[in-house]
């Protein structure tokens, strides 16, 4: 197991370097504003811009520039023309005049809070729903649940967000019970921020819960056909124990994989729709703004940061798998 983890860690770093290369190349070939020009400002003359270009290393070859970039992202070595250094130095966003890393770190708490709450909502809804639907297969309850989940899956999150705002937001809602758009940024206490997150949690949580509930149901139904479930009944075990201990235990394993990856992509900025609809200053909303402004260092930074989350959680999922399923052995 230890050897597996070490091997995977090395592979992960290698993967991140490859991702950086791709991101860097995209950035390099992408027609964009000249960073030296942006740094020098409007009044600068050509010599000044040229001097800045040289000090940033922008006149060097692609390879040399890539080396500078990699140094900034992965090592604490000094970088030319700047007093910032890595690791995690993704560059400077001239549009927002800030270190990309600082921007991402300041956006992260809102996104983490959104994702953690949404995960609690979606697992809390999906697990009981999936179990009940599978156990009461073809009952009225099962059919009603499956139709409801289908609606939530088909509805785009931004539309669902607007519907929830229209129904429950305290400024425009029919039943004004929860804080609405922009309340997260406006809140200055933790309790205020929690209140502001209720609607986003519900929207993101329920939309994802629908997928998970259906998936868990089908997993449960598959496992219920397994021979060892019949054995469990033949031993005279109570239904509840057969379902919770034997069926759910097996059915939940693939859900864990799915959960790990979903959390990773959401942290990586995939909560973009929810964050935009509710105007939550998180990584997703930052991505949206960066794309709008063509803020390439920012896009680059968020992409790499996202890749980091995805690679890390993938590793966590693989390790968790070995604990959940004794048949899985890595060596």
């Amino acid at each position: 197991m230890a050897r597996f983890i070490v091997r995977r860690l090395i592979a992960s770093i290698f993967l991140l370097i490859v991702v950086s290369a791709v991101v860097f190349l995209l950035f390099y070939v992408f027609p964009s504003a000249d960073p030296a020009q942006l740094r020098a400002g409007r009044q600068a003359n050509a010599d000044q811009i040229q001097a800045i270009r040289e000090s940033l290393g922008l006149d060097k070859s692609v390879i040399a520039q890539f080396w500078i970039y990699i140094k900034g992202v992965f090592t604490p070595l000094d970088l030319p023309g700047t007093d910032s250094h890595g690791p995690l130095y993704f560059g400077h966003s001239y549009q927002s005049n800030a270190d990309v890393k600082d921007v991402i770190f300041s956006d992260l708490p809102a996104t983490v809070m959104l994702v953690v709450g949404a995960v609690i909502v979606w697992m809390g809804v999906a697990i009981p729903t999936g179990i009940i639907s599978a156990v009461r297969r073809r009952s009225f309850l099962d059919r009603a649940t499956m139709i409801t989940t289908l609606i939530f899956i088909s509805a785009p999150v931004f539309w669902l967000g607007l519907v929830f705002l229209y129904l429950f937001a305290d400024d425009v809602g029919l039943i004004p019970i929860f804080p609405g758009i922009g309340s997260y940024g406006a809140a200055d206490t933790f309790a205020g921020k929690v209140g502001a997150m209720i609607l986003p949690w519900l929207v993101l949580g329920l939309a994802t819960a629908a997928i998970y509930a259906r998936y868990l149901r089908s997993q449960m139904l598959d496992v219920m056909e397994e021979d060892y479930i019949r054995t469990a009944y033949a031993k005279g075990l109570p239904d509840k124990r057969v379902i919770m201990k034997h069926t759910l235990r097996s059915a939940i394993t693939p859900i864990v994989t799915l959960l790990g990856l979903d959390v990773a992509v959401l942290l990586a900025g995939n909560a973009i729709l929810t964050e935009t609809v509710f105007n939550i200053p998180g990584v997703g909303a930052e991505t949206f703004n960066a794309i709008k402004r063509s803020d390439l260092p920012m896009i680059q930074g968020i992409t790499l940061f996202g890749a980091f989350f995805i690679v890390t959680l993938n590793l966590v999922v693989d390790i968790a798998y070995a604990y959940l399923d004794p048949r899985v052995r890595y060596d």
Binding site: Y228, A234, K235, G236, R249, S250, P326, R327
Partner: peptide, 19 residues
């Protein structure tokens, strides 16, 4: 089932809970 009526199944490979 169990103390009075026992059952042994045909396919031994898949009859025990793998977890």
């Amino acid at each position: 089932r169990g103390p009075e009526l026992g059952l042994i199944f045909q396919e031994p490979m898949t009859r025990l809970d793998p977890l």
